[in-house]
Amino acid sequence: MENRQKENRIITDGLSYRYPEAERDAVSDVALRVRAGEFVCILGHNGSGKSTLAKLFNALYVPTEGTVWVCGMDTKDDELVFDIRQNAGMVFQNPDNQIVATVVEEDVAFGLENNGVPPQEIRVRIDEALAAVGMSERAKKAPHMLSGGQKQRVAIAGVLAMRPSVIILDESTAMLDPSGRAEVMNTVRRLNREEGISIVLITHFMTEAAQADMIYVMDGGKIAMTGTPREVFSQIGRVRALGLDVPPMTALAETLGKAGLPVRPDVLTVEEMVEEVCRLQSKG
């Protein structure tokens, strides 16, 4: 068990959650795991239970049935709640509604202040965190002066300062413009690669999902599909039946395939498409 916990940041087992007075489970019988350093994406149309799932990872909700372990800690244990929240940091959707303080660096310090970290240590950690998301220059700015992408990077810094093992992004790019989205995704990918922080990304954008190591597709509170992006998106029919799209390049590959060109159907990115087209051309 010890070993299993070390390599797994989040494990859920038979996890169900029902909102008070709801008719059915918002999340039902979910078993998944997030390994150390893994980049996991959770997809699903609106109301599929993916946001509820995220809040279960952070002990904001406690399972009605089953268990969630975050770094080996059961979220049902009241005494561990703050350790769990420190380990599983969460970034929400609306950049305006999650910044508490009126100065960037003071907001980054918020979580550390709550945890009673000594002031000198807070200073060191917020400087590190702001540098990691590339916002050091704006440490003294007021949050409302920042763009959406910058605000989300501040929110990430706030989580990062707590030295989490996993960061959960609950549709954190949904309200941003394309450049803000790219900013946030680049930051997240770098933290994942360089700092080895596990990522749980909840998103509507298939191009973001294509960058993950592992995808879970939710439908009606259950996990409907699991696999690497290539495994999931090559089943175009099933993905569409679940009310989702496939990445634009996968859709293009499908169209080209239908038009009679022998393009691989599991193309995910522009680079792969370029390769594929070049391969066809050199052949033809």
Binding site: N58, N97, P119, I122
Partner: peptide, 18 residues
């Protein structure tokens, strides 16, 4: 929700950056 997720638990044992 965001404050709770960031371990907010009232004024006790809270430290300050400054």
């Amino acid at each position: 929700m965001a404050m709770e997720a960031r371990c907010y638990r009232g004024g006790e044992h809270r430290t300050r950056l400054r």
